[in-house]
């Protein structure tokens, strides 16, 4: 059964305070050099063979991501 990965991240113009909190936490761990973090979501879908690209596009764009605030990518593994 094919596996499909959908990654969702906030659009660049959307302030991501969770990502900023991660950036601020890293130096406190002694880990330096990270300028920006965008926190998103990672989905792994096991799909039937007949699920086509258009259907995957709808799954990603109509439910997994909110296109008002998020960008997404679909990858077949």
């Amino acid at each position: 059964m094919p596996r499909v990965v959908v990654d969702v991240v906030p659009k660049p113009e959307i302030l991501d305070p969770q990502g900023q909190a991660i950036v601020r936490a890293l130096p406190r761990m002694g880990l330096r050099g990270v300028r920006d973090v965008r926190q998103g979501k990672h989905f792994e879908l096991d799909v039937d063979d007949e699920v086509d690209a258009q259907t995957l596009h709808r799954i990603a764009g109509e439910l997994l991501a909110n296109p008002v605030i998020e960008n997404w990518t679909v990858r077949r593994l």
Binding site: P10, I14, L15, P17, Q18, A21, N66, V68, I69
Partner: peptide
């Protein structure tokens, strides 16, 4: 309605 509601800026 247009737009979206996201995490408060102050978390």
């Amino acid at each position: 309605l247009p737009g979206a509601l996201v995490r408060n800026a102050g978390l």
